[in-house]
Every structure is written in C-alpha cells, then in structure tokens.
C-alpha cells in the first residue's frame, strides 16, 4: 500500500494530527498528509470543526467561572484574614 492510500484511510492518525495542529504548526509532510485525508473524509472534517468548538467552549467555561459565580465562604475569608494579620504582627 502506498503512503497516500495509507493516510487516506487512517482516521486515527488524521485526528491526532488535527490535535497537534491546534497546539503547534504541523511539519510539511504532516500537513500534506492531513490535507489529503481531510479532502476525502467527511467524518474527520466534522471532527476538526467539533474539536475547535470544544477548545473554544472549554476556554470560555474556565474564564467565565473565574469571573464571579463561585465565591469563597465568608467565614473562611475571615479566618484567612485573621491569620494574615497574625503573621504581620
């Protein structure tokens, strides 16, 4: 089996390249392989879109949660404040 027909069929490799590409640029050969695969595989094209969407939603999820909605218990805060005051004496 030639190199091209191998990558055309290999969805495991293609999805792994998609994940790599979300973190760093692919090498030339990797990039070619991914393009060839995506041209012929609608499942992996869908995976690519959904993978990006998941990255975006996870990012939002974490940043939003750091906004305000999970507050520390006031009693705990008071204790921490006392401990800090104590150490500053």
């Amino acid at each position: 089996m030639g190199v091209i027909s191998t990558i055309q069929n290999d969805c495991r490799k293609a999805t792994s390249l998609i994940e790599k590409r979300s973190v760093r640029p692919l090498g030339f050969r990797e990039w070619c392989e991914l393009c060839i695969h995506l041209a012929g595989c609608s499942f992996c094209r869908l995976f690519l879109r959904q993978s990006r969407m998941i990255n975006a939603v996870v990012g939002d999820l974490f940043r939003r949660a750091e906004g305000a909605d999970r507050r520390m218990d006031e009693e705990d805060k008071r204790r921490m404040q006392e401990e800090i005051e104590e150490r500053l004496k």
């Binding site: 750091e66 305000a68 909605d69 999970r70 507050r71 805060k77 921490m80 800090i84």
Partner: peptide, 17 residues
C-alpha cells in the same frame, strides 16, 4: 491586609475550576 478582600474569590474560583 487587603489580599483576602481583593483576591480570595478570584483565587478560589481559579483553584476550584
């Protein structure tokens, strides 16, 4: 002395996340 008031909620959310 102002850390708790200013940053406790933020740091807590960061950690809990």
């Amino acid at each position: 002395r102002r850390w708790v008031e200013r940053h406790a909620d933020y740091l807590y959310a960061y950690a809990l996340n």
